[in-house]
Design a protein around this nucleic acid. Structure first.
Length: 229
DNA sequence: CACCAGGCAAGTA
DNA sequence: TACTTGCATGGT
């Protein structure tokens, strides 16, 4: 049996395999920090292609700014974001996020980005419609904070490779990565993007794992060597 | 036709 | 605290 690998080696090996396979993802797919925030809310449990249509509607209306969105009635927001699903819900969530930025930071995302990570994360989690994944996506991809984003794909891939159980919490999975990896924004950025790409391509709910960059990925942790499925 | 997608909050026990 | 349910469009 091989010598047990450290968690750091396991996670970096997975990262290198995914990077080798897909190349850099250049995330988040958006033209501005505000567009990242809007996209983070609209993509909740929704395919990104649908989010693109919704964002295009907002752009076509010339409304992709804090000032414009702030004065847009919620019914109008709902009409624009309709293609992304849950449109009544997401219109309210969008409005709540925009109001928070306007009221707390005078609509200035650069001012917002100067607040320390942990304090900012708590603030975001207090906003209606912003949970852990959305908060972390905003922190990392819109504000440049070194935090690891955990999503359904992250969970699914780790579970399939026996690195975590089904009931592992968001925070535990986040700690798994953040305790083992250097806390660098470019690494966290690329790592999560690669997980999403790998998940979309090879690890959907209906399994389709052949040729996955992680197939045959030997995981040895705590002296127990497992074979990925 | 059924199932799924880069969650979240509110309700229930 | 830990589970369940509603929310909704568009692609496969």
């Amino acid at each position: 049996m091989e010598r047990p690998e450290s968690l750091t080696n396991i996670l970096m090996s997975a990262y290198n395999r995914m990077l080798q396979h897909f190349g850099p993802r250049h995330w988040w797919p958006a033209d501005s920090p505000l567009e990242v925030i809007v996209g983070a809310i609209l993509t909740q449990n929704t395919a990104w292609t649908n989010v693109e249509k919704a964002i295009e509607n907002i752009k076509s209306a010339g409304a992709l700014s804090i000032k414009k969105l702030l004065e847009t009635p919620v019914e109008c927001l709902a009409a624009w974001v309709r293609p992304s699903g849950y449109f009544n819900l997401k219109a309210r969530r969008l409005q709540a996020a925009i109001r928070f930025i306007a009221e707390t930071y005078e609509g200035d995302l650069e001012k917002m980005a100067r607040v320390p990570l942990s304090a900012l994360r708590k603030q975001l989690l207090g906003v209606y419609g912003i949970g852990e994944e959305t908060a972390d996506s905003i922190l990392l991809y819109a504000l440049g904070k070194p935090v690891f984003v955990v999503d359904a794909y992250t969970r699914r891939i780790l579970t399939r490779h026996h690195l975590t159980g089904q009931k592992t919490t968001y925070g535990e999975i986040q700690q798994l990565f953040m305790s083992a990896l250097p806390k660098e924004v470019p690494l966290f950025n690329e790592y999560h993007a690669l997980i999403v790409e790998t998940g979309k391509t090879f690890c959907r709910r209906t399994p389709l794992c052949s040729d996955c960059p992680l197939s045959g990925w030997h995981v040895s942790l705590a002296g127990v060597v497992l074979e990925s499925s």
